[in-house]
Amino acid sequence: MSELILTKALSVGYKQGRNSSPLHSNINVKLMQGEFACLLGPNGAGKSTLLKTFAGFLPKISGDVYINGKNPDKLNAATKARLISVVLTERLMVPNMTVYDLVALGRSPFTGFFGRLTGKDRQLVIKAIGDAGLEGFANRNLMELSDGERQKALIAKALVQETPLILLDEPTAFLDLPSRVEIMHLLKNLAHKKQIGVLLSTHDLDLALQTADKVWLLAAGLPMETGVPEDLVLTNEFRKFFEREGILFDNATGHFTMAGAHVKSIRLIGKGLEYKWVSRALSRQGFTTSDDPFSRLQVEIRSDSQREYILSGPDGVPIRLRTIEDLLEQLKMAEKRQSLTE
């Protein structure tokens, strides 16, 4: 195992004339071989700037960066091309370019003066298209692809470059939810199978928590935190990190909620999948669920023969309901009655 990225007291940012004000300083991180890491943080925290510095597009301000043990500032473009491949946020619109054409350009660091592909290059291109989950798409035009498919084509381009490190700047932005999940799992699997380092920036907190080997947390004015997602949860780093933005991270459920949303409490009896989803629906309505027998309201989930929700309040008979939708409706009415009587 070797470090693909290693930084020591790194400062990144844009130089403006002579004075340079770093966007983020004293960054000490590392990315290991075969590791899938997600860089999380609000807009403007410097996620793209950090990735650009790693890719060598932007000179660092101070400190040290080592990519696979080498200082990228001292490498020429051709050597860097065999070390790092990138997928950028800019939308690629080239008329008439097919998936095959794009991925074939990924072989450029290995081809000769005129960029002609050998038979082996062509095989690798087809294989990379398959590995990225685009089998049969080789002759499709880039302009006709969905955003998710185009993103996969760019991942195939990065794969065929055969670099030990792939950097991706928000590869899941603009994508629909299924495509986001697909891309994240694809990247995780590629990192593990091919034993390459994959670092991406994203805003998909939930997905990053589920899939990432390591999470890098970057926010303006805070030291960068990295670690296995579960460690960051248990050491409360996650909670601390998001608190500043008015978002509460529930360490118990792993869910994000808006601060100050929960005021009412309800007793929920049940288990398993049903319990989880009913609890979620109630939470959306502003209820915290508990096992407190002294709660004013109580919902019991019956799932032995036929699914049933039994709502009982302090006054009157329990109401039997078939769907969560009906349950929420009844709760709203109960609340209204209560506000009238008070």
Binding site: G56, K80, V86, L88, V94, L105, S108
Partner: peptide, 15 residues
């Protein structure tokens, strides 16, 4: 051929 992809992609591919 690579410049068509934009400066960043082109330089990442060794140009």
């Amino acid at each position: 051929n690579l410049m068509v992809l934009g400066d960043n992609y082109a330089s990442n591919l060794g140009v």
